[in-house]
Write a protein that binds this DNA or RNA. Structure first.
Lengths: 131, 131
DNA sequence: TGGTGTTATGTTATATTATAACACCAGCCT
DNA sequence: AGGCTGGTGTTATAATATAACATAACACCA
């Protein structure tokens, strides 16, 4: 039933939105299993795939984890800054940079379809602390 | 023994260099197991970690796979263009873009340490074919 | 020369992430 | 009702990665 799928997506998104740091599919599964003990991985992965497809969540490739998309149009490529100390992730938008990346990538005939841009480091708070 | 570790790294790098497309750790393990049946995953992962650390190989985060680093200084961040049709990967260098990315990432006090830039799409050959 | 600390490597086992494959059920058409 | 279709649930397992401990090599010094 389609409605149920949407419902699952909404639940998964809710869990992501409630989190301060990225969650793995199994983190989400663990949370939702409290209410629905029979929930299984494919259900979570399907919901996540749909959410990422819609731009309502991001997959963090370098961590195999997910975050809710916050604060910008859902069809734009986000630059993700990932704090390796506290785990927090921020989204940044820079259309020019994306444009330029597309240009660099396609210089030899390559046709870009999707960008992954993840920057690891320390967030302001953690950088401050370790000084 | 240190020499032996270096030898493993050299063997792993050799397998990567011989491949036209990214290999997973288990692909490499499968190849090297022919000569050394007792080889285990941690040995491969350790060699890969060292190679990536030295810039002699790249990890492709969005595929959980690895390629040998080809044709540029090993301490530069490469932009990887990944063909989703044939699997081929190319490395591109654009210092300005990296510089700009560092700038964007650090605008709110974030301190970047490592960049992941992967562009998915179709290589020139595959884009041509599917026209 | 052999003891002892230190670090790299080997090995076993297991944790974590992801998906294949099929079963089931609702809705829809006739 | 009967049968098709497509989405969802469910089971099982594949694929990726690492923890934890055992062992081996080397370095240093009494």
């Amino acid at each position: 039933m389609r409605t149920q799928g949407l419902h699952t997506q909404q639940e998964v998104l809710g869990v992501l939105e409630a989190a301060e740091t990225p969650l793995t599919a199994y983190d989400i599964l663990g949370t939702l299993k409290i209410g629905k003990p029979k929930l299984a991985p494919p259900t979570i992965y399907r919901a996540l795939a749909a959410l990422v497809e819609q731009g309502r969540a991001h997959r963090i490739e370098s961590k195999n984890a997910f975050i809710a998309c916050r604060g910008h149009a859902h069809d734009e490529t986000a630059i993700l800054t990932i704090c390796d100390d506290c785990g927090s992730v921020d989204e940044k938008i820079d259309k020019d940079l994306i444009h330029r990346l597309g240009h660099v990538a396609s210089d030899d005939g390559f046709r870009p379809r999707h960008h992954v841009i993840e920057v690891h480091g320390s967030c302001a708070d953690c950088a401050e602390e370790s000084k």
